[in-house]
């Protein structure tokens, strides 16, 4: 196949998918960005951004979003890494059981997981009934509830990515390191971690984007104030009918995600060289 022909064929094959993306995602994103720079009279202005960055309630919401996202990401990464390492180096019955079941939450519809969570952890829920209400800390309608919900949704996916990365590390590498007397900790830092940190970055990217932009979990499980930006944006749109303000909140969330998206793309490109 000639080079020219390959170029044309490649672009032609990408087009159906890319044009869908253009219409369903890129165009609406442009509309949002444009709206975020318009005031009520349809003129160009920074009004919406000034509102978001000066209104104390909005500043609290931004802070809350960053805190929830960072805490959730760190906990999810830590636990997923732990489970992945455990699954990679253990072949007991229990490990097999976890291997077969850990990804089930990825396939449970989100709204149902949240519903089950609320019924289990609310102050008169199942756990309160089992251990007594006074022994159960406040979990629902609180930051702890959102973080737990994020853990439930994201640990399986992150574990899956890490399991795949760790299974690519050959046993022989680890065996030979053991033979020359390397300690477990040393093997981890010298071999396992460097070979899997790239996947950690991939996992972090999707984790971060998913949690920053989340709506359903914080809407149903979080406190009323401060809110996560996803909830706040929805309210500005459907309760206050402030399309411009809602758009500027969306753009700010997008910029947060774009930062980590840039790191992801950068690392993918670098590897090729």
């Amino acid at each position: 196949m000639s080079k020219r022909k390959e170029n044309l064929l490649g672009i032609a094959m990408v087009m159906p998918s890319f044009i869908s993306l253009l219409i369903l995602v890129i165009w609406p994103v442009m509309i949002s960005i444009k709206e975020s720079f318009m005031n009520g009279e349809g003129q160009f202005s920074f009004e919406n951004y000034i509102y978001v960055f000066t209104e104390p309630m909005m500043l609290n919401n931004i802070k809350h979003t960053v805190v929830v996202t960072l805490i959730s990401c760190i906990i999810v990464l830590f636990i997923s890494y732990f489970i992945a390492i455990y699954l990679r180096f253990t072949s007991s019955k229990i490990a097999n059981f976890i291997r077969k079941t850990y990804f089930i939450p990825m396939f449970v519809p989100g709204i149902i997981a949240i519903y089950g969570f609320i019924n289990t952890y609310r102050d008169n829920g199942w756990i309160a009934r089992l251990i007594g209400q006074e022994n159960l800390p406040v979990l629902m309608y609180d930051i702890k509830g959102v973080v737990m919900m994020n853990m439930w949704f994201n640990i399986p996916f992150t574990t899956m990515l890490l399991v795949s990365a760790l299974s690519a590390i050959p046993d022989s590498v680890i065996e030979s390191a053991k033979d020359v007397g390397a300690t477990k900790l040393k093997i981890f830092w010298k071999f396992i971690f460097p070979l899997s940190y790239k996947t950690m970055l991939v996992a972090t990217t999707f984790l971060f984007m998913g949690i920053v932009g989340s709506f359903t979990a914080p809407f149903l499980v979080d406190s009323n104030a401060p809110q996560m930006l996803g909830v706040s944006m929805q309210q500005h749109f459907s309760v206050y009918h402030e399309f411009g303000q809602a758009s500027s909140i969306a753009v700010i969330m997008f910029i947060m995600s774009a930062g980590i998206g840039y790191l992801y793309i950068h690392s993918m490109m670098k590897e090729e060289k």
Partner: peptide
């Protein structure tokens, strides 16, 4: 990489637009 945009822009904002 342009497909990453579907995840990077908040869904709710996308739906509204």
């Amino acid at each position: 990489f342009s497909f990453l945009l579907t995840n990077a822009f908040p869904k709710m904002g996308l739906y509204v637009a």
